[in-house]
């Protein structure tokens, strides 16, 4: 068994003091050691982007980073977005309202990539989304609705900021609502 290294890492606001093998990938640490299955592995070669998480607010492919590199870092995964009461984050709401997902496997990576973008560029244009998420592969949607979702998320978040509101709880009635 290779020597273990110490990793003090904050994930979704919780501090962890862990020992792991030097070769453990961040994605595996999140999924296996911290039981956060929302980060998905699509290729483990850094091409598809499904495993994208935020490391110190920067979108990062968790299949290409060793956990040992992240001592002292702060990581956010898709599990950080929605409220424990079932309230979806505005980015998640936008994805469901614009039908920006089908099988959902690439979606956590898209959401976290979008999260980084929207923190930098609050109301992105199509080109901004393509720049930020152009390296994330989706095999289902054809991307059109993902671009729409991210732009809509920007509008939702801007609306909330200007209204001084927190994100609305989405009731089941609203979920079944008919869109025009």
């Amino acid at each position: 068994m290779p020597d273990e290294v110490r990793v003090r890492i904050t994930v979704n606001g919780t501090r962890h003091d862990l020992r792991t093998e030097p070769r453990t990938l961040l994605a595996d640490l999140l999924r296996n050691d911290l039981a956060l299955p929302g980060t998905h592995l699509g290729c483990e070669q850094g091409v598809c982007g499904a495993c994208t998480v935020l490391v110190d607010d920067v979108a990062t492919r968790s299949c290409l980073v060793f956990a040992a590199q992240l001592d002292g870092a702060s990581v956010r995964t898709v599990e950080s977005l929605a409220g424990a009461d079932g309230t979806l984050h505005p980015i998640q709401r936008a994805f469901t309202e614009e039908h920006g997902l089908q099988c959902g496997f690439c979606t956590p990576g898209m959401l976290m990539g979008a999260c980084e973008l929207l923190e930098r560029v609050p109301e992105p244009r199509r080109e901004d989304v393509e720049e930020a998420l152009g390296g994330n592969l989706c095999r289902c949607t054809g991307y059109q609705n993902i671009v729409r979702s991210v732009c809509a998320a920007g509008r939702l978040m801007a609306g909330q900021a200007s209204d001084g509101q927190t994100s609305d709880g989405q009731t089941s009635d609203e979920q079944s609502g008919v869109r025009a």
Binding site: P37, L41, V78, L88
Partner: peptide, 20 residues
């Protein structure tokens, strides 16, 4: 009608239960 997708919330939150 474009009824909202029932499948979405679990997929959006990483709770869908894939084989992995």
């Amino acid at each position: 009608q474009s009824v909202a997708r029932k499948e979405d919330p679990k997929l959006l939150t990483g709770r869908a239960g894939f084989i992995g």
